[in-house]
Amino acid sequence: MAYEHKIEVEDLRTWFGDRQILKGISCYFEDNSVTAVMGPSGCGKSTFLRTINRLNDMVPGFRATGSVRFEGNDVLAPDADVYELRRRIGMVFQRPNPFPMSIRDNITYGPKLHGVRDEGELERIVEDSLRKAALWDEVKDTLDSPAPHLSGGQQQRLCIARALSVDPPVLLMDEPVSALDPISASKIEDLIVQLKKDYTIILVTHNVQQAFRVSDQAAFLYMGELVEFDKTRRIAEAPEDPRTEAFITGRIG
């Protein structure tokens, strides 16, 4: 199917039970760049992100209408291959959540799920993913030690490496630095900027400064509505909607 952008969203509406969360969102995500989805807590930005890889399916009472197209195919279609979808759309969570296993096993978990058995190939994936996540030099001698022993910032970079291990073209990041100390956070921000060369990144954040620092496009979500969506620089310099201005100047949020 022909498509212009890897991910295109049209009139997306979602509900948890009777409560409507997203109220008709239409936007797209530029390939090989960072799009920040920002907004105050409870605006629906996490729900939005988790709809893209169908992770909300797990939540009782979740419902979505409209469409999210990934490479032209509707993600929300009942017959969509959700496992392949999630392989191709990686995710990094708010809190580092390494599996209770060794650093190496954390990285090989995904590839093994999808049928990679060759030891040499797995070895290559481990090094490659850890290098991309700027963690290789710190852990290359301790690959077999438990991942939960790493520091918080290292754990989060491991989680990024784990997401990259299955080679997804798209990376969803749900406030990936909000649980980290400033130094670890800035390392990961740098990493995000590095990664956009090869990946399409959607970064959810409530931190305006961070959105401005790392993103190329920005979407401002407020109470389930997409208030503004444009180049980050334009939004930063001249927000069109008063609500956007209120948010970026810190009056709401």
Binding site: R86, M91, P100, C159
Partner: peptide, 27 residues
């Protein structure tokens, strides 16, 4: 076992039983 561990596995394209077996029970 934190929900986010299960989600991390699902988000990599694992089935639920695989997630339960390899991640949740292990933890």
């Amino acid at each position: 076992v934190p929900v986010s561990l299960r989600e991390a596995s699902l988000a990599l394209g694992a089935t639920r039983w695989r997630t339960t077996w390899s991640v949740t029970i292990r933890a």
